[in-house]
Amino acid sequence: MASITLTVNGSARTIDVRDPEKPLLYAIRNDLGLKGAKYGCGLGQCGSCTILVDGEPVRSCTVPVSAFAGKKITTIEGLGSPEKPHKVQAAFIAEQAAQCGYCTNGMVMTGAALLEKNPKPTAAQVKDALAQNLCRCGTHERIVAAVVKAGGARG
C-alpha cells in the first residue's frame, strides 16, 4: 500500500492509500477526520467539497489523493475556528448566511480564495466567483452579502 504525505492546515500528515484513485475528499474526511468539506455530488458540480490547494479552490471530490503529494492544503477547519474565525467565516456568522449550511463549506472556501486575489470584491464579482457553487436552500443573497462584507467593499 502506498503512503502519501500531505501538508494539511500547516502540518504534515501521512496517509496510506490502497487505491490511488481515491479522491482527496475521502482521505481528508475519513483518514484525517476533517469533516468540514462535504460530499455533495462527487462530480465536481456543486462545490460542497471545496478545499484550498496552494490558495486555489479545488473540488476535492474528483481529484485523486495521489495528485496532492507535496501540496499545501487548507480546509475550512484550518481557515479559522468559532473562537477565531477567518474574516469570511466571521461575516457568514454576522450575516447569518446559512440555512441548512451544507453548502457553506464551499461558499466560505471559494469566498476566502476570492478575497486573496481581489480583497474588496463587489457583489457582481462575488456572484461570478460563486457561479459554480450550488445552494438549494436559497441562501444566496446572504452569502453574497457576507463575502462582500468580509472584503469591506460596498455591495
Binding site: G36, T75, F92
Partner: peptide, 19 residues
C-alpha cells in the same frame, strides 16, 4: 436572536448526520 448553529457551520465544526 442569532442562530446557535451558524458559528459551527461556518467553521466546519458542526456535526451533520454525514459526519
Amino acid at each position: 436572536v442569532p442562530r446557535p448553529d451558524i458559528p459551527a457551520k461556518a467553521t466546519g465544526r458542526f456535526v451533520y448526520m454525514h459526519d
